[in-house]
Design a protein around this nucleic acid. Structure first.
Lengths: 285, 285
DNA sequence: GTCTTGATGAAAAGAATTTACTCTTGGTGA
DNA sequence: TCACCAAGAGTAAATTCTTTTCATCAAGAC
């Protein structure tokens, strides 16, 4: 539990003069670091003794320990937002190149962090099960999502799985309705509303295939059409950065899926990767 | 510049007793936070006066300011490594799924951070200039790098640039040697040694095209074959995670390029994106 | 050989922090 | 009504920590 939330929590039970100190710190935590106990007491129109009482009240032995702990905590917070440019602010025409680049990078980092952070491992595990159990893996996405589908297909192919990224809606539906070996169908759509992709999953499901959705929209046609829905977390500032960031998040998610599948058949996977690697190296002489 | 590296840097020029203090802090920075100036002096077999001198020597006005700053810095460091699983450690068979996933995510985050962090903006700017000035943009990569090439081509296409991701080496060379409008050729190769990609850039260069390399290898045939070499920074733990992480880093780099190009023609770009967006929306009714 | 110069620590001086004690205020029960 | 208690708050003394000052010492320069 952080110091600041501890202060927040105990603020209501504190007597007036200690409460003033709590309020001052809540409003600007760095006063503790910048000011001595005397200055802080004066700023809160109270005595240094009360500041010491306040420190005790929130669980510290004195002012110095509180100072150190708070400095550390503020450092942590700063780190969370440092190197992440002007957060959330739009990438605009006026930005210099380094500014624009760091804003974009910040969004991409955040997207991966949050996507992986909120991942439901039960769903992920179930999806991996489905992929692991299938003899035919069909992947479909349109536009930017197509890259992601192709990427995963390529990776699965390299470890010896029978994966196909379908190029167009007709081909996708045709493959989905084909009665063949146990199939898993994976549909990719950032907004979750791309009609062709939804149809693809629906058709596959109607034909007894397991279905997986990868989208950012929790409550969307695509997620409803799937047995297992995996979500990306993207703070899409606008369409300008949106496509890039959502693609990165989808790829990170796809990597998680792949790692899971690879783990299931670890030795085979390692073996397969080694072979493909050697084979391609042979090509280069 | 961090406090700890400042200490590191000045340690060699410090007189013996101050050097002892520097050594103690270097070995365990948190002594500064845990101990008073008296205790620290005693631990270093020196006087409190020397500790104050030390603080001055590394640019602080006294012990208290150093304490606060160091506490903040340690907090930052702590934040950097929390939530990033077991760092650098290999993804292994024994990992649970959440472990494996967080290790992978940590590697991907690090790759983006470091790639963007070490980016040479002069080179980036020059590369963007080249792309901006070209009337024909040729992109080529093989294997995993092909996705990156296709991705960038797709994005440039969407903002109205004449970009082509070439599918195979023959096509690539053929396009490169064609005497046509001012051309820029962009080659992608993680290792920087893929023969076909190197040949592609060489052919393009011989024909007067501007050339750009995207690779992780600073000193490689590909980077030497290019006018402007952009580097990804990947701590490739092994081939298991390597392909995924390097691809993410390349994409992040490609996004930087794209943002730069888009900035040059901001209104046109926004306009073009809006049009393509509306057009695709029309398709979905 | 003496004179700097820089390094060092002891101790005084100055701040900051903590403790001890006092004062006020508002309530309680005889 | 009044004595009394307890909680809240402050003053000032005591303590601890930090900074400054000054004296000493060693090593190299003249």
């Amino acid at each position: 539990m952080s110091i600041q939330s501890t202060i927040e929590a105990s603020a209501s039970t504190l007597p007036p003069s200690l409460a003033r100190i709590a309020a001052a710190i809540r409003e600007n935590p760095s006063v503790v670091i910048d000011k001595t106990i005397n200055e802080l007491a004066e700023e809160c129109s109270t005595s240094v003794a009360s500041v010491v009482r306040f420190c005790r009240a929130i669980g510290f032995s004195g002012y110095a320990p509180l100072r150190m702990a708070l400095a550390t905590e503020l450092g942590k917070e700063a780190a969370q937002f440092s190197g992440r440019g002007a957060f959330g602010s739009e990438i605009s025409d006026e930005d210099t190149l380094p500014e624009a680049v760091s804003k974009l990078a910040a969004l991409e980092l955040l997207a991966i962090e949050e996507t992986v952070g909120q991942l439901d491992f039960d769903v992920l595990d179930a999806a991996i099960d489905a992929i692991d159990g299938a003899e035919r893996i069909l992947l479909f996405g349109i536009g930017a999502s197509q890259f992601v589908a192709v990427d995963l297909a390529h990776k699965l192919l390299r470890v010896g799985r029978n994966a196909h990224a379908l190029a167009d809606p007709h081909e996708a539906i045709a493959a989905a309705v084909l009665h063949a070996a146990p199939t898993v169908a994976i549909g990719f759509s950032h907004a979750g509303s791309t009609l062709e992709t939804v149809r693809f999953l629906e058709a596959a499901r109607a034909n007894g295939a397991a279905t997986i959705a990868v989208t950012s929209a929790k409550d969307s046609p695509l997620s409803h059409a799937a047995d297992h829905a995996l979500f990306t977390e993207v703070r899409e500032s606008t369409f300008r950065a949106g496509a890039m960031v959502s693609r990165i998040a989808q790829l990170a998610l796809v990597d998680c899926l792949f790692v899971g599948v690879a783990k299931r058949r670890f030795s085979e996977t390692v073996d397969a990767l080694q072979r493909t690697r050697e084979a391609t190296r042979a090509l280069h002489g």
